[in-house]
Design a protein around this nucleic acid. Structure first.
Length: 599
RNA sequence: GGUGAUGUAGCUCAGUUGGUUAGAGCGACGCACUCAUAAUGCGUAGGUCCUCAGUUCAAGUCUGAGCAUCACCA
């Protein structure tokens, strides 16, 4: 019985390029998980998109003196190309400035309001006469009321490190117009009344805790223990989704509130785009469906508490006659952070490894391999260039790539380009075949439990076993005096390589296709990743779309047919030069220029 | 300041409910091999499991205190 799996992936702010932190935290684990489940024959829907709203985008736009829209459109385009290149197989990667997303977000606001889950409250905020607007904390500077540092930011003091309340700053001023004295004004906002859900949320946590990661459980419990206070879901800004009420034209939905809605709105958009407008309900109104939210640890309470509260509050939306409730996240396998050469990622200091840059210099599967081997699943990990160098050369290339290359070219040369025909296999031959076949169960159950790092190292252990097997059977020796025995062992190792290739395919989809072809198979292991343009009534947008119709890869053992024609193999991976370590370290912290992304 | 997490071989990390000589990969060293991008295989060396105190017949594993790192919250 196939499972129904929703893979919800955190939405990146479209205010800068994607970096390895994005990949390590959410996108790559989600992709590996989704590819595996598709191979397994399960029904997968994986969605995400660019977060086009939010202050980070406005701040970046102001810094460059352009509109917020042009910033998000620029980076959305780059997100599509980058993720296409590294192969993140979204069924739909869209963005939050679509008519569809605006509509769904406003509908959800309206439903929550009608059901009494929202309340109005007056807040005091800093107002700029000059700009005729309330200023978000990030636009405010002033004297710290704790240490009296004169240039404290609106949300935090860089001198004493304390988090600040912007309205309490001494002589608060606008970042854009430092000469102006800001005043405090009252403004009205809607709040989501989280406390109304506390009983249901505790029940929800109790039910799911047993299969959640320890860090996710403790973050969530801690968040609830601190008390479920109402959270504002509207703001005094002009870039974002309008509040669907008369007289609220100057306000917009708060980005934290509408971005998570993207999981549903993108599912709805995907269904519309595929011509089956109700298809999204197979995931969202289906008690058997499992929803997995792949996110970074900074987002945990939003996905285990606040988002479930929103979902509980809108149960039955677009499906009033439903007898089953709207689905809540089944698991939130949050990753910790991936640091870089021992230091935390920092955009402002350019202490970052940008994906467009490294995809220009290294193979996508090399990047995927290193990051997957270093996934911060239980604690922060560290991306180090000497580590990248040695893991790619000594593990990916030397153990796996070389195994493929040595035996495929041996078979190609010594067995006239065909899979050898054999009489009977020896004990050792059957033993290694059985061991690798058992990997489907072993690696598969680790992936299902989202223990991806362990899944990868288990598969790599089998690669080492295969190399060990060769050393005992030595086909390059036996071919000289006992051709029949060489045929047995070469047949065996090709069979083993076929299955190892399947086990590694979710991690290394690009080289999986290459090996598949070298072995003489036709067709595609996975489907295609296309950039598609979608028109709505007043505007159109592009999305990244996985089309699985051509995919033939399945998660099961395969037996090679003796006599099958092989294709001439070439080396799978490019060997890295030691110089890259210092070269790459040199880019860290230095000024960077965005390059074109070549496909 | 509060909460949570982490601290195990040169490096990156595993170590389930406390139980025999603490594991893996990489790196180092030695040997073997030559099909392969000098790639592989076997073997060796390398650890007061952050510190101190406690519980126990027995602690990397439990408890307390401390030190260090990180995150979240204030």
């Amino acid at each position: 019985m196939p499972k129904t799996i929703h893979v919800s992936v955190a939405w990146p702010y479209a205010n800068g390029d994607l970096h390895v932190g994005h990949l390590a935290g959410a996108y790559l684990p989600a992709d590996i998980f989704a590819r595996y489940h598709r191979m397994k024959g399960n029904r997968v829907l994986m969605v995400s998109g660019s977060d086009s709203h939010g202050t980070p985008i406005s701040v970046e736009a102001d810094r460059r003196g352009v509109t917020a829209r042009s910033i998000f459109e620029h980076y959305h385009e780059r997100f599509l190309l980058t993720q296409q290149k590294i192969g993140i197989s979204y069924d739909l990667f869209t963005h939050t400035d679509t008519e569809n997303h605006h509509q769904v977000s406003q509908d959800i606001f309206t439903v929550l309001l009608e059901r009494g889950y929202l309340y109005k409250e007056t807040q005091k905020l800093l107002y700029s006469e000059l700009e005729k607007r309330f200023l978000p904390d990030r636009y405010v500077e002033g004297e710290c009321y704790i240490c009296h540092y004169p240039d404290a930011r609106g949300d935090q003091c860089d001198n004493c490190g304390n988090l600040l309340e912007a309205t309490q700053l001494i002589n608060p001023r606008s970042k854009n117009h430092p000469e102006e004295r800001l005043s405090i004004r009252e403004t009205e906002h809607y709040f989501l009344d989280l406390s109304k859900f506390s009983g249901q949320l505790l029940e929800y946590l109790d039910k799911h805790e047993p299969h959640w990661r320890a860090n996710v459980v403790s973050f969530s419990r801690n968040f609830i223990a601190e008390g479920l206070r109402g959270r504002p879901i509207t703001r005094d800004i002009d870039w974002g989704i309008k509040v669907p009420l008369e007289g609220w034209d100057s306000k917009r939905l708060y980005v934290w509130f509408e971005a998570v809605i993207g999981y549903i709105s993108a599912s709805i958009e995907w269904a519309k785009n595929s011509g089956q407008p109700d298809a999204w309900k197979d995931w969202w109104y289906n008690p058997e469906a499992e929803i997995y939210n792949f996110i970074g640890k900074d987002n945990i309470p939003f996905h285990t508490v606040i988002w479930p509260a929103e979902l509980l509050g809108i149960d039955g939306i677009y499906n009033p006659d439903s007898t089953t409730p709207l689905s809540l996240p089944y698991d939130v396998p949050a990753n910790e952070f991936m640091n870089i050469e021992g230091k935390q990622f920092s955009k402002s200091r350019n202490w970052a490894i940008w994906l467009p840059d490294i995809l220009d210099r290294y193979q996508a599967d090399a990047v995927r391999y290193y990051i997957a081997a270093m996934f911060p699943e239980t604690k922060d990990s560290d991306y180090a260039w000497d580590g990248f160098f040695s893991r790619v050369n000594a593990e990916l290339l030397a153990a796996w790539g070389n195994l493929v290359n040595r035996m495929l070219s041996f078979a190609y040369k010594r067995f006239a380009g065909h899979v050898p025909t054999y009489d009977e296999l020896t004990f050792e031959d059957k033993q290694i075949i059985a061991k690798v076949e058992a990997g489907f169960e072993e690696v598969g159950s680790l992936i299902e439990a989202v223990k991806l790092k362990e899944a990868l190292s288990t598969a790599m252990g089998l690669v080492r076993d295969a190399n060990g097997y060769l050393d005992t059977r030595k086909p390059w020796m036996t071919i000289k005096e006992d051709a029949a025995d060489a045929a047995r062992s070469v047949y065996t190792i090709l069979n083993v390589i076929t299955n190892l290739n399947t086990l590694l395919a979710p991690f290394l989809p690009h080289s999986a296709q290459t090996v598949h072809e070298y072995l003489g198979f036709d067709g595609q292991v996975f489907g295609d990743l296309n950039i598609v343009e979608y028109a709505e009534s007043t505007r159109s947008h592009k999305g990244l779309v996985y089309d699985g119709t051509k995919a033939i890869g399945t998660w099961e053992k395969r037996t090679l047919t003796p006599g099958q024609a092989l294709r001439e193999p070439k080396a799978l991976y490019i060997k890295l030069e030691p110089e890259i370590i210092e070269q790459e370290r040199g880019y860290l912290g230095a000024p960077r220029e965005e390059g074109e992304i070549e496909v």
